[in-house]
Design a protein around this nucleic acid. Structure first.
Lengths: 340, 340
DNA sequence: TTGTAAGCGTTATCAA
DNA sequence: TTGATAACGCTTACAA
């Protein structure tokens, strides 16, 4: 490995002169600089990140922590983050799993963006207490070193509920996310608020897991008790798709006997038949804003918590109960109606 | 920031003793060790990664380089890598974009897995020449510090072609990937080999880009010249789906007038209507094997190049030209046939 | 304009 | 079993 010491020797100058030349410090003559640069190039010099980080106490690398690497949401989100990071001279790395948490306290990265509900809040606060900078995308955390960039879950869930109600639904199943999920809790809270306001709307909560399997199980449960047109609000698209998949194997038609709406507007939701209604938001912008906020708090600039706005995307998965013939359900041949 | 020096002072021992205690070196008494450990904990000591990396000349971090963060292939691939990395005491970070290439030469990571055709081979060879360890997933590169874990593209493309031919197809469109793509070149080579062997099979190559848009454009082109049942082999699923999307807006029915097969068997391919036939392989295993190979070459163990085997997944997008009525196409009302 | 030297937080060699 | 001490490669006062 060739170091500035080697260059200094070859150029017949001191290591500090080399360092200055390499860093574009204008303390050195253009002549010596270009000589040093030439030698550095000739020797294939590459700076050592660890040494620089050790000395400067910053790595110019930001980390984002995800629950896992799959998930349809991440693509745009991450490229939004990367774009902002790069324009500010930072690199972005993506991490997942408990093992990699050490990157933050060990100062391998200058800050972290969290979208991983398995990353304990206590741990995050600990790190923030030690001075590390963090942006959270999946929880509320009040701390001078932590900033939040959260989805407007309340608006989204309210939009979804009102959309179903506008379409004449009086009976709405709500499939939630896993216990620990902040998004799920927030969305559910908004659901209740809307439902309680509408006296004649009945709502049934089913515990889900934000994964396809949760939607399938919810479908089973709904099929067992189905007796009249209803709507389902799955608190994310993944579950909505699992639910539609399962329903497709039954006699009930999505968009006819059962209306379904999701949340996140993932790409797959455009391909499901019928097209899934959902709540959309700019994932790219979310990522970009998160990165911006992180860079700001690292720079010591004051920041306020931010909110990502959402919109409703219509889909044929919601048509209203009026669409269905009164006799339609009962007309299902008995022997095939065994599912429900 | 609390360092081993601080601990040493508080414990009344030297820094080397602290270092030994912290690293589980059995040169120290259990008594002193536990005292030191207690003090370290009390002081919230966290080792400094940069310092350790600088001294030990290794970071115990491996990096994987992707073209972008989206793409349906990555989820399983990355979790396969992560699992292997973690069991060997390595952390995995995901990087994208030219800026982050520096991680390797600057020794931020101990090795790299490449799945990014925009990462120039010359650059990789350069790094390998300098002693860095690399595993490539998207090209052939002969170098003592580079190992390859490649898909069996030849087998996959051959399977796909034979599947179409078995179904009676004589006219096969092939939509390729972008210029630089190794996978595309390999698959195409196999396509030609099969097609040339079958005297009565005509094949037409259309340049694509491995993205949805490429499939859509290919569809346009096919629609313009369509006059008889044909098949399309899209060299990846993404394009196949774009193609099906476009075709869905025309009079031609996939699985009837036009059969389609893809490559990769991404999740979306299960949701397209009709279900897309494709070439499958274990993405998880691919990632796991790549990580294993990288860890081995870092450890100086000898490795051979590896190959990931593929299988054919049938789908209703391929039924054979015999399925279509001879008059069927012509019976399309003239005013609606304007597309082709 | 360039050089000297201290120090970032570790690890590891060698003495004690 | 422990302690001094010299690196690792770099940045940056301060001196020349």
């Amino acid at each position: 490995m060739v170091s500035i010491k080697d260059i200094a020797k070859k150029a017949g100058v001191s290591i500090s002169t080399v360092s200055y030349a390499l860093n574009g410090n204008n303390k050195v003559t253009d002549e010596t600089r270009s000589k040093i640069l030439a030698i550095a190039k000739e020797m294939n010099y590459v700076p050592n990140a660890a040494a620089r980080t050790l000395k400067k106490r910053e790595s110019r690398i930001l980390g984002v922590f995800l629950t896992d690497f799959s998930g349809d949401v991440y693509g745009d989100l991450l490229s939004g983050m990367k774009a902002v990071c790069n324009t500010h001279g930072y690199d972005l790395i993506v991490c997942s799993g408990k093992q990699s948490h050490r990157m933050l306290p060990e100062r391998m990265i200058d800050g972290a963006i969290i979208l991983d509900h398995t990353f304990a809040s206590e741990e995050l606060i600990q790190y923030a207490d030690w001075g590390h900078k963090i942006v959270v995308l999946d929880r509320e955390l009040k701390h001078p070193n932590i900033n939040q960039v959260l989805l407007d879950n309340k608006a989204g869930a309210t939009l979804a509920m009102e959309y179903l109600i506008e379409h004449g639904h009086k009976k709405i199943y709500v499939v939630t996310g896993p216990e620990g999920s902040f998004d799920s809790v927030q969305r559910l809270k908004a659901v209740r608020q809307v439902a309680e306001r509408e006296a004649d709307v009945e709502w049934i909560e089913i515990t889900g897991d934000f994964e396809k399997s949760g939607g399938e199980q919810a479908a089973e449960q709904i099929l067992e008790t189905y007796n009249e047109p209803a709507a389902v609000f799955c608190l994310n698209d993944e579950m909505a798709i699992g639910l539609c998949d399962r329903l497709a194997q039954s006699e009930l038609q999505v968009g006819q006997h059962i209306d379904v709406i999701g949340f996140d507007h993932i790409e797959l939701s455009n391909y499901v038949q019928p097209k899934l209604a959902s709540i959309d938001y700019s994932k790219r912008k979310w990522g970009a804003l998160a990165a911006e906020q992180l860079i700001k708090i690292i720079a010591g600039e004051p920041v306020d918590h931010e909110r990502i706005y959402v919109t409703l995307i219509e889909g044929e998965s919601v048509t209203g109960p009026n669409q269905v013939d009164a006799d339609d359900v009962k007309s299902v041949p008995q022997e095939r109606a065994v599912n429900y």
